[in-house]
Amino acid sequence: RRVTVRKADAGGLGISIKGGRENKMPILISKIFKGLAADQTEALFVGDAILSVNGEDLSSATHDEAVQALKKTGKEVVLEVKYMK
């Protein structure tokens, strides 16, 4: 599913991630910080795999590559996510 997140002037997306190619895992949302941008969408969940950020494929990204992709986003971020059981 596709989720658009609008960041506030102060603060980032409000998520922590884990996983990555070096761990043989997808990039997973490991924490959502209450009240910040990702939480306010009410459409992102701990355990979601982030498949892409603004069209940039993260399916084979390392953890560091995913962190950089998320950091360089502007005010509006489009995440392609899939819930992983």
Rank of each mutant, 00 (worst) to 15 (best):
R1T: 02
R1H: 06
R1Y: 02
R1P: 05
R1F: 05
R1W: 01
R2F: 15
R2E: 08
R2H: 07
R2G: 00
V3A: 02
V3I: 09
V3K: 02
V3N: 00
V3M: 04
V3D: 00
T4Y: 13
T4I: 14
T4N: 06
V5I: 15
V5C: 10
V5P: 02
V5L: 13
R6I: 13
R6M: 14
R6N: 14
R6L: 13
R6D: 08
R6E: 10
R6V: 14
K7N: 14
K7E: 07
K7M: 13
A8G: 14
A8K: 12
A8E: 12
A8F: 10
A8N: 11
D9F: 12
D9L: 13
D9K: 12
D9A: 15
D9W: 09
A10P: 13
A10I: 15
A10V: 13
A10K: 15
A10Q: 13
G11W: 07
G11M: 14
G11S: 13
G11Y: 10
G11T: 14
G11I: 15
G12D: 14
G12F: 09
G12L: 12
G12A: 11
L13R: 03
L13C: 04
L13A: 02
L13V: 06
L13Q: 01
L13K: 01
G14H: 00
G14W: 05
G14S: 01
G14L: 01
G14E: 01
I15Q: 03
I15K: 03
I15L: 11
S16H: 11
S16V: 12
S16Q: 15
S16R: 12
S16N: 11
S16M: 13
I17A: 03
I17T: 06
I17V: 09
I17C: 02
I17Q: 02
K18C: 15
K18G: 10
K18W: 13
K18V: 15
K18F: 10
K18S: 15
K18E: 15
G19I: 00
G19F: 03
G19Y: 00
G19E: 03
G19D: 01
G20D: 04
G20C: 02
G20F: 00
G20A: 02
R21C: 08
R21K: 11
R21L: 08
R21W: 07
R21E: 06
R21Y: 10
E22L: 06
E22K: 00
E22G: 06
N23K: 14
N23T: 12
N23S: 11
N23L: 12
N23G: 06
N23H: 15
N23Y: 15
K24N: 14
K24V: 01
K24Y: 05
K24I: 00
K24H: 13
M25F: 00
M25A: 10
M25N: 10
M25S: 13
M25E: 12
M25V: 04
M25R: 08
P26W: 00
P26Q: 03
P26M: 04
P26S: 00
P26K: 00
P26G: 05
P26Y: 05
I27P: 03
L28C: 10
L28W: 15
L28M: 14
L28S: 08
I29P: 05
I29S: 02
I29C: 01
I29N: 04
I29K: 03
I29D: 01
S30T: 11
S30K: 09
S30I: 03
S30F: 00
S30P: 03
K31Y: 08
K31L: 01
I32M: 05
I32V: 10
F33A: 15
F33K: 15
F33Y: 13
F33H: 15
F33T: 15
F33S: 14
K34F: 03
K34H: 10
K34P: 15
K34I: 08
G35F: 00
G35V: 04
G35M: 01
G35S: 06
G35E: 05
L36R: 12
L36Q: 15
L36V: 06
L36E: 15
L36G: 15
L36T: 14
A37Y: 00
A37F: 03
A37G: 10
A38S: 07
A38P: 04
A38Q: 05
A38M: 08
D39Y: 09
D39K: 03
D39E: 09
D39I: 05
Q40V: 08
Q40P: 05
Q40I: 07
Q40E: 09
Q40T: 09
Q40G: 08
T41N: 08
T41A: 10
E42K: 15
E42V: 03
E42R: 14
A43N: 13
A43S: 14
A43R: 11
A43W: 01
A43G: 13
A43H: 07
F45T: 10
F45Y: 15
F45S: 13
F45A: 12
V46N: 06
V46M: 06
V46W: 02
V46A: 07
V46R: 05
V46L: 04
G47F: 05
G47Q: 05
G47I: 00
G47K: 00
D48L: 00
D48N: 06
D48H: 00
D48C: 05
D48F: 00
I50W: 02
I50Q: 06
I50F: 02
I50M: 05
L51K: 07
L51S: 06
L51H: 07
L51A: 07
L51Y: 06
S52C: 05
S52T: 09
S52M: 06
V53F: 02
V53G: 04
V53E: 03
V53D: 00
V53L: 07
N54C: 02
N54G: 05
N54Q: 06
G55L: 03
G55W: 00
G55T: 03
G55K: 05
G55Q: 04
E56D: 10
E56W: 11
E56Q: 15
E56P: 02
E56C: 11
E56N: 15
E56G: 06
L58V: 09
L58E: 01
L58K: 02
L58N: 01
S59M: 08
S59F: 03
S59T: 15
S59L: 08
S60H: 15
S60M: 13
S60R: 14
S60K: 12
S60Q: 13
S60F: 11
A61E: 00
A61C: 09
A61Y: 09
A61D: 00
A61Q: 02
T62H: 00
T62F: 00
T62C: 06
T62L: 03
H63C: 14
H63R: 13
H63L: 11
H63M: 13
H63K: 12
D64E: 13
D64H: 12
D64K: 12
D64C: 09
E65Q: 10
E65T: 07
E65K: 05
E65F: 06
E65H: 08
A66S: 04
V67R: 09
V67S: 09
V67C: 11
V67Q: 11
V67N: 08
V67H: 07
V67I: 13
Q68P: 03
Q68K: 14
Q68L: 10
Q68N: 12
A69H: 08
A69M: 13
A69E: 05
A69P: 00
L70V: 05
L70S: 02
L70H: 04
L70E: 01
K71Q: 14
K71T: 12
K71Y: 10
K71P: 03
K71E: 15
K71C: 11
K71N: 15
K71G: 11
K71W: 09
K72T: 11
K72V: 11
K72W: 08
K72I: 10
K72E: 11
T73C: 14
T73R: 07
T73I: 09
T73S: 12
T73A: 15
G74V: 06
G74F: 05
G74W: 04
K75N: 12
K75M: 09
K75L: 08
K75E: 14
K75H: 11
V77R: 06
V77Y: 05
V77C: 14
V77S: 07
V78I: 07
L79H: 01
L79T: 05
L79P: 07
L79Y: 00
E80Q: 09
E80D: 09
E80V: 10
E80S: 06
E80T: 10
E80A: 03
E80Y: 08
E80F: 06
V81A: 05
V81C: 06
V81D: 02
V81S: 05
V81G: 05
V81K: 06
V81P: 03
V81E: 06
K82G: 08
K82Q: 14
K82M: 12
Y83Q: 15
Y83I: 07
Y83A: 15
Y83G: 15
Y83F: 11
M84Q: 13
M84H: 12
K85R: 14
K85W: 10
K85C: 15
K85F: 15
